[in-house]
Computed example of a mutant assay.
Amino acid sequence: MRRQKLLKNVARYVAIGIIALVFLFPLLWMGLSSIKTSLDITDPTRLFRFTPTLDNFVRVMTEAQFGLFMLNSLVVGIAAVGLSLLLAVPAAYVMAKYGMSRSSGMLLVARIIPGVSLLVPFYYVFAMLGWVGGYAPLIISHMFVTMPLIAWVMLSFFESLPSDLEEAGLVDGLTNIGVFARIALPLSTPGIATASILAFIFSWNNFMFALVLASQSTRTLPVAIFNFIAYSSVDWGGLMAASVIITLPVIVMALFTQKYIVSGLTAGATKG
C-alpha cells in the first residue's frame, strides 16, 4: 500500500515536471537568447554553452527608446485601470444590489465582442476628433477591455456581501451612497485589488489598439517590439531582449500578487 502511494506521488511529480518544462522552456529560451549574440542564437549547439552579453539590453534601452515606450504603457495602463475602477465598481454594486441580471449579462457580451471589429469605428471617431496619435484614444480603447473585466469580477463580490450589513447601515442613518462607500467598498478591497491587477495585465499586453491608434511618440511596448522585425531579417537578439523587458514586469507582478489574485477570485464564490 505504501509502495503504491509512493509510485503515485512519483508519477504525479514527473507529470507536473513535464508540463512545467513544456510551458517554461519558451521563457527559458527567450531569457537565454536575450543575453546571446545573433550568431549564438542561430547556432543550436550553443543553447547553453555561450558567453553572456548585455549588449542587446543596452541597445534596446538606448537605440530603440524602450524607456519611452515603457512609460507610455504605464501611463495608458494606470489611466485605463483607474478610470475603469471609477465607473465599473459603482456599476457592479448597483447591478448586484438590484438584481440586474440582464445588465450583468451584457458584460459578457462586451467581453465576447472581438476588439478588431471596433478598430475602424474607433479610428473614425478619434480621427474626426483629432485625437489619433495621443494618449486619449489608447486609454479609452483599453477601457473597453478593462471595464467589463473589473465589473464582472466585482459583481460576484458585491453579491456575496451579507445584506444584513447594508440594512444595518441604513438603520444607522446612512444613505445608499454611504452604505456603498463605508461598508461595501471597504469589504470588497480584495476584489478591487484582483480586478485591478488583471485589468492592468490585459492593458499592458494589448497590441491591437495601440498598433492603429498610437503615434511614434505614444507607442506602447507590444507595438514597439516590431522595430526589431524588418522585411528581410529579424534582429533576434534585440527582439528577445525586448520580449524579456515586456514579459518580466508581468511575471514579477503575478508572482508577488498570486495569493491576492487567488483569494480575490475565490472570495466572491460563495454568498452569505
Rank of each mutant, 00 (worst) to 15 (best):
A15Q: 06
K5G: 10
P137I: 05
K259D: 10
S263D: 15
A79T: 14
S141F: 00
V171Y: 04
K5R: 15
N56I: 15
V109K: 03
A96Y: 09
V120L: 13
V14N: 01
T175C: 03
S156W: 00
P121N: 05
Q216K: 11
A151G: 04
G169Y: 07
V75P: 03
S33N: 11
S101T: 12
G178H: 12
L211W: 11
F200S: 10
I201W: 09
Q216P: 02
W131V: 06
F180L: 14
L129D: 10
A92R: 03
A168V: 07
L239P: 07
V75I: 15
G130S: 12
A224N: 04
A254R: 00
M100D: 10
L21R: 07
T45F: 05
D43Y: 08
F200R: 02
D235L: 15
F228T: 13
M95H: 05
A193D: 00
G77D: 06
S203Q: 06
K259A: 03
P190N: 11
Y260P: 00
V22S: 06
L87P: 12
N56C: 13
M61Q: 13
G82F: 13
V14D: 03
A184H: 09
L239R: 15
L239F: 08
G268T: 07
L86G: 13
G105M: 15
I201A: 08
A181D: 03
T175W: 07
V212I: 15
P162K: 04
V120R: 00
S203R: 07
F202S: 05
L74F: 12
I150H: 02
V223T: 10
F69Y: 12
G173Y: 01
A88T: 12
F180K: 09
A20I: 09
M240E: 01
V76W: 02
L85Y: 00
F57Q: 08
L85M: 15
A80M: 08
R49D: 14
A181V: 12
K5M: 08
L187Y: 12
M154S: 13
Y135R: 01
V81G: 02
F122S: 07
A91G: 12
W131S: 14
V171W: 02
A181S: 11
I192W: 13
I19W: 09
S232D: 14
G272Q: 06
A224L: 05
I261G: 02
R111C: 09
I78D: 04
I19L: 15
V171E: 02
S104L: 01
L83G: 13
R2G: 01
K8N: 09
A92V: 08
T189N: 09
I177P: 00
Y13G: 05
L107I: 10
I41T: 11
A210I: 08
N56Q: 15
I150V: 10
Y93P: 06
V250I: 09
P52N: 10
I246H: 04
L213C: 10
